[in-house]
């Protein structure tokens, strides 16, 4: 089995990793090679959304994506999202609304919501923003606080 080097474009930087196995998932490359531990491993079967990152600007499950399949597409993790104003607004909204309890699912929520808010100049209504988070599971909050955070974040970026 070949463990060739792999180059990825992560959070605006070109990163190169030596000997990456072909079967490695983007989630593992990010956490264990790039040291970006903000992206979480939840179910590893595409159900929970904790591992959501942006690939080519689109929310994508990094647990179900081979690192070698990413190619030239830019990858943005929660660390990258947290560095831009929209990401910061979303994070602030989550904190203010009390939408974080254990916090494990939060990076996935923030990435998925920031992507939606960044897509167009006038953000979609709260309902469709919440719909866009259907793939993110939270076992703590009961979602009400997250819905409040969505409304707050939407207001903040308007």
């Amino acid at each position: 089995m070949t463990d060739a080097a792999l180059a990825l474009h992560i959070n605006g930087q070109s990163r190169r990793f030596a000997s990456v196995p072909d079967a490695e998932r983007l989630l593992d490359t990010l956490r264990w090679r790039a040291g970006l531990k903000g992206t979480k491993e939840g179910c590893r079967t595409g159900d929970c959304g904790a591992c959501t990152v942006l690939v080519g600007g689109e929310p994508t499950l990094s647990c179900l994506l081979l690192s070698r399949e990413v190619g030239d597409e830019p990858v943005t993790t929660i660390e990258g999202v947290a560095a831009v104003p929209i990401g910061q607004a979303v994070i602030k909204a989550f904190a203010e609304a009390g939408a974080v309890q254990c916090g494990y699912c939060t990076p996935g929520f923030v990435v998925a919501l920031a992507a939606q808010l960044g897509r167009s100049k006038s953000p979609p209504d709260v309902e469709s923003l919440v719909d866009g988070l259907e793939g993110n599971l939270c076992r703590c909050t009961g979602y009400r606080a997250i819905e409040r955070a969505v409304a707050l974040a939407r207001k903040a970026v308007q």
């Binding site: 196995p21 072909d22 079967a23 490695e24 998932r25 490359t29 264990w32 081979l66």
Partner: peptide
């Protein structure tokens, strides 16, 4: 220090 990619292994071909 968990080693990565040890669960499974295969060769990826990208024609």
């Amino acid at each position: 220090r968990r080693p990565v990619g040890v669960r499974v292994s295969f060769q990826l071909v990208q024609p």
